[in-house]
Design a protein around this nucleic acid. Structure first.
Lengths: 312, 312
DNA sequence: CGTGATTACGTTTATCGTAATTATA
DNA sequence: TATAATTACGATAAACGTAATCACG
C-alpha cells in the first residue's frame, strides 16, 4: 500500500470511475493506474470497484467504506506537507482562494493588496466561480479557502464561518421613472423589469424571497454573475438593478442613481469556508483575519476543532 | 513520502528517539531507517529530530507538530487494512484485548468462551497488565480494546464507555475475629491488617477514599494485582481481604467467610476503551456487546463519532 | 571504547511508460 | 467500431541490507 495507489483510487472516483481520465489528470499512464489499483485491491483483499467485464461501473460496498478512509489518509498526508512548508518557508508558498465575482471584484482587492505586501513571496490565485463550485474546490483541496455568500454552509466537509454582512442596493439610470423618488419600495421595484444576480449568487435567494413574501411577482429580464455586467445594462436602460452595496462605487458609478435597500431584503452573510481537518498555513490564517478581523487564528482553530467529527 | 518513512519516524519517537531500537522493532536495518528519515526530512524541508552531532536528542518544533499528523495518517492507513479484512474475511482475524487480572480471570471467561464459539477463526489474545499499561496498549494500537476499572477515562486518545458496575466484597478466614459478626463496618475492618489490590487497580482508589472519608487509617500489609493471590493470603490468616465481588466464587471459596461491602465503598465502573478514530471489525463490536450488552454497535459508533475531535 | 548514527555500495524489488491486446457499449 | 481496461515487457529508480566509518558520552 502506498500513497500513489490511494491517489489513483481517489482520482478515479472523482472522475466518475473513468480510469483513463484519472490517469490523465494525474499526468501518468493508464496502465500504471490500472495495475496499481489492482495491487491495492489484492493487498486489501477486496475489490474496490465493481467491474462489468473491463468497465468500472460502481464502487463495491467495501469500496464505499474505503473511499472515505482514503480521503482522510490523503488529507492528513497533505497536511504533513503543509506543516513542513509552514516551517521550511514560513513566508512563501501558495494560497488559492475560491470565490465569486462580487467578492473578488469588491470585497477582496484591499485584502489581497495588504496580503501581497505582507507576504510578497506567496503566490496568490483567485479561483472564480459560482458558490457550489467554490464549495467543491475547497472540498477537493483545489482551493485553500472559499469565500461566498451562498451555499457554503450546506456541506458536511466544510466549516463555514461568518465573515461580514452586507445588504443590497438598488440602482437605476438617471432618466428612469424611479429616479425621481426619494426612497424606494418593493412594490415600486416590482413594476419594472429587474436585472440582478443569477440563481445561487450573492444573495439572490434573499431577493426572491423578499418579493415572494409580499406576494409580488417580478420580471427579471436579465441575470448575471457579475455586478459590473448588471450595472452596464442598467445604464443602458434595460431595467432596475439590484446589486450588493459593496458593488456600488460612489465615484465610478455616479452615472447611476442609488437607493439603499437594506430594509427591503434580508441581510446577507458572506462566509469563509475551509475544509474540515485541514492544516492551515500561517499566512492562510493571516489572510482570513485580514478579510474578517473577528476570525482570528484562535477562533478559526476553535471552529476547526469543533467541526472535526468527520464521520464515524 | 511513503508509509514506511512515517512508520520509521513514529517508531523512533516511541522508542524514545533511539533509532537502533526502532530499526530492531520494525525488523529492518539501522542504516535504512536513518536514510529514510533523512529523506523524509528533506522532502518536507524541515528537521524532525534535533541532533547533537549524530545523536537524536529531541523533536524539533515542526517535528512535534508532524508527529501528531503522522500518527493520524498511520492510524487511518491501518483502518484501511481493517476495512479490507472486515470484508475479505468476515469471520477471521485477530482480536487483542488489553485488560487487568481481575477482568481476565472473572469477568471475561464467559465472554471469551461465547466469542470463540461464534468466531472460531478469530485469534484472540489477552494482554494483561495494570490499567495505565492497558491504556497505553490501546493507544499504541497493540491492543484493539481495553477493559479496566481505572484510568481509562483519563486519556484524550481514548473513548471509554461504561461496561458494567460492581462492588467490593470483604473476605476473612473462618477463625478471624470478624468472622463471628453478622455484618461489617469500615471501623471494624480498620482495626485489622488489610490485604487488597495494588494502587491503580480494580477500584483501589475507592477503597482508600472510603476509609479516608471517615478519618480511618488502615494498615495494608499486602497488595496484589491479583484476587487469587489476595484470597490465598487471607486464607493464611495474614489479614482481611477486600476484593471485587465477582472474584468471590461461592464454591471454590467456601473456606472464606464473605461480607457484602457494597455499602462501604463507592460503586466501581469497569470501562471498555477504544482508540479514537479506529475502525472496528464486526467481531470487535460483537465482543464488546457480548461483554456489555448495552454497548451495541450503534452506541459504540455514536461514541466513536462523538469523540472524534482529535486535536485542531 | 562502546553505543549509536551516517556513508558507501551492490543487490533486489518496485514503479513507470510504451506497445500490444482484449473486452464493452 | 470507438472507447476503455488489462497484459506484456523493458528501462529507470527507489528501497534494502551489509560492511565500513564516524562521533558522542
Amino acid at each position: 500500500m502506498n500513497f500513489q495507489q490511494l491517489r489513483y483510487v481517489r482520482e478515479t472516483v472523482r472522475r466518475r470511475l473513468n480510469l483513463t481520465e484519472a490517469a490523465r489528470a494525474l499526468h501518468t499512464s493508464q496502465p500504471g493506474v490500472s495495475k496499481q489499483i489492482r495491487e491495492l485491491e489484492d493487498e486489501l483483499g477486496v475489490q474496490i470497484f465493481e467491474r462489468h467485464g473491463r468497465r468500472f461501473v460502481a464502487l463495491t460496498p467495501p469500496g464505499r467504506e474505503l473511499i472515505g478512509v482514503i480521503e482522510r489518509v490523503l488529507l492528513e498526508a497533505e497536511n504533513l506537507k503543509r506543516v513542513g512548508e509552514n516551517y521550511a518557508a514560513r513566508d512563501s508558498g501558495r494560497l488559492t482562494i475560491a470565490t465569486t465575482h462580487t467578492q473578488a471584484r469588491y470585497a477582496l482587492p484591499q485584502v489581497v493588496a495588504a496580503f501581497r505586501e505582507r507576504f510578497p513571496k506567496v503566490r496568490l490565485s483567485l479561483q472564480q466561480g459560482h458558490p457550489p463550485a467554490v464549495a467543491r474546490w475547497v472540498i477537493s483541496g483545489e482551493a485553500d479557502i472559499g469565500i461566498a455568500t451562498e451555499s457554503l454552509d450546506h456541506f458536511d466537509e466544510l466549516i463555514a464561518m461568518p465573515g461580514y454582512q452586507w445588504t443590497h442596493t438598488v440602482v437605476v439610470p438617471p432618466g428612469h421613472p424611479l429616479a425621481r423618488q426619494r426612497s424606494i419600495s418593493l412594490e415600486a421595484i416590482a413594476q419594472h423589469p429587474i436585472i440582478t444576480y443569477s440563481n445561487e449568487f450573492a444573495g439572490r435567494n434573499h431577493i426572491d424571497t423578499a418579493f415572494e413574501a409580499k406576494g409580488l411577482s417580478i420580471d427579471v429580464v436579465l441575470t448575471a454573475i457579475d455586478s459590473d455586467v448588471i450595472k452596464t445594462y442598467v445604464e443602458l436602460g434595460l431595467g432596475v438593478g439590484i446589486i450588493a452595496s459593496v458593488a456600488y462605487d460612489e465615484i465610478r458609478d455616479r452615472g447611476l442613481k442609488r437607493f439603499d435597500a437594506s430594509h427591503l431584503f434580508p441581510i446577507n452573510t458572506t462566509r469563509v469556508a475551509i475544509r474540515k481537518g485541514t492544516f492551515l498555513r500561517d499566512f492562510t490564517y493571516a489572510f482570513i483575519e485580514s478579510f474578517a478581523p473577528e476570525l482570528t487564528t484562535e477562533r478559526v482553530n476553535a471552529a476547526l476543532a469543533e467541526g472535526k467529527p468527520l464521520k464515524g
